[in-house]
Nucleic acid binder design. Sequence first.
DNA 1: AACGGTCTCAACCGCGGATGG
DNA 2: CCCATCCGCGGTTGAGACCGT
Length: 333
Amino acid sequence: MGRAPCCDKTKVKRGPWSPEEDSKLRDYIEKYGNGGNWISLPLKAGLRRCGKSCRLRWLNYLRPNIKHGDFSEEEDMIIFSLFAAIGSRWSIIAAHLPGRTDNDIKNYWNTKLRKKLLSSSSSSSSSHSSSAMASPYLNPNSQDVKRSLTPSVTIPSSSYNPYAENPNQDPTKYLISNINGFEADDKQIFPYSNLNYPQDLSLSDSNNNISGASGFLLNHNMCDHYNNHTSFSSDVNGKRSETMIKQEEMMMMMMIDHHIDQRTKGYNGDSTQGYYNYYNGHGDLKQMISGTGTNSNINMGGSGSSSSSISNLAENKSSSSLLQHKCLPYFYS
DNA sequence: AACGGTCTCAACCGCGGATGG
DNA sequence: CCCATCCGCGGTTGAGACCGT
């Protein structure tokens, strides 16, 4: 016995919305809101539509400040990064892309980005590219990743090749799930659904410098990592699983690569040094973030003489405003 | 111009979770 | 607790647009 339908489908209109219906729905919601009840809204608004259909139409199309089409390369980058980190949680990804809807991002992924990912992962050679599509963290086997990390990286090459071992499996899913390595317990590691992240983060800093986007992603990941460090440190049995370690490694690789990528574009954002160091086992993450460590290897780098910890960066007005105002509270909360 | 294949994206479907009685 | 209801989400569908022949 199946689930009862949410409405009587014989009495509601289905299919594309007419301009008149859009107008009715928009007018009603702008005047009264949805009243906390989508099911009863269509009746009140004089629409012969299912409440769920109204909700969808509003959220995906009529809602103010919706952006459609023309995803920027930075948005691609963010989608790639978040998809690699959390998978197909479109609503969460959408929350990081102001004006974009989960449906839009899902469609965009399925029709465009997914293909680009597959094409980039299948072309193994390439010099380091600044293109989001060719970003080597999507293919940890790439020579670029190996070159950008130290020889201590010990990721079995075959296990990351979606074609070598699982030719019949959806290569995208396999690739991503192996980058993540945490299909089963990702909520423990990246509990995005429970985060208190501010939803209004902009993607640029106060100077409209895109390095803010870099810092945004980077530091959200770092926030996660930091806030859940105990989850990384051990499982319920007090052990660190290979999966957990791999997750950390992969996240670090992503961060490093993303920053290298940003720098090749001429952005002078946060240094990658701290991530290298952490990745290479020289730093303690909490020390690295708080700047309390004594080993210079644990600082967050910064180019030239301006190396600093994250907390120092927070004092620096030239650093990302996101870092200063949005992310740090989460480090210290 | 006609046709068939492919692509896009708005909309639908059904499930799981949250909430409240 | 249990149950009913609703919300929100991700997967899927299909009509129309687009493109190549």
